[in-house]
Amino acid sequence: MREFYGKSLPNGFMLGTAQYPSPAILADAFKRSGASVATVSLRRESGRDRAGQDFWQLIRNLGVHILPNTAGCHSVKEAVTTAHMAREVFDTKWIKLEVIGEEDTLHPDVFGLVEAARILSEDGFQVFPYTTEDLVVADKLRHAGCEVLMPWGAPIGSGLGLNNIFGLRALRAHFPDVPLVIDAGLGLPSHAAAAMEMGFDAVLLNTAVAKAGDPAAMAEAFAAAIKAGKLAKAADPMEPRDMAAPSTPVIGKAFLE
């Protein structure tokens, strides 16, 4: 099991805390998900005068690792400021780093991402960068100090699943020792199972659970899928092949004249 900055997690489920119908439903979804990490976005405005503390306390009460994120930040400076605020509020070095480059797809600004990752890593943060499946960017993030990478499955909130299987497979093969988390774009538990079967260490999702008709039930469904995918990967799945391979030998089989 690959460790996340020295912490091993009991499962590969990271769940976001935004967009739930109510905090009570959010807490219920976490209970049924068994997720080991909660991501929480910090609005600069609520950080400034600590106006968000009621909600933050609720997140702390979930009793899981907290991974604050810089969601909605469009520049290096904004992301760095938010990360500092998050470290103060949640007393953790972990930061999920998002630097958004394009409004319609919420595509990461990978140039700003690498720069912010370097600044924050040098400042003692343990950075979880939200990136694409681009190998070169991944490599630069590693050199910037990131010990975990979080490639997207598809654009945030799209629910499209794993958009570029080849790219993601290449990334996994390229960084065999780096913990990799599929972050964003998952819509169904089967997407999460597929990611785990491919050998990713965890998945991070939010909208697929929060916007489900029954978020708690969907959280449980994702937990089951993640568990299944992880177990399947560990069980060393068979290799696919082009021709049929009879599961029963033909020789010795009874036949009728």
Binding site: P23, E45, A51
Partner: peptide, 13 residues
């Protein structure tokens, strides 16, 4: 709809 009690002012965003 923002989790957190309101300050006095509306944000530009």
């Amino acid at each position: 709809m923002i989790e957190g009690h309101a300050g006095k002012h509306v944000t530009a965003r």
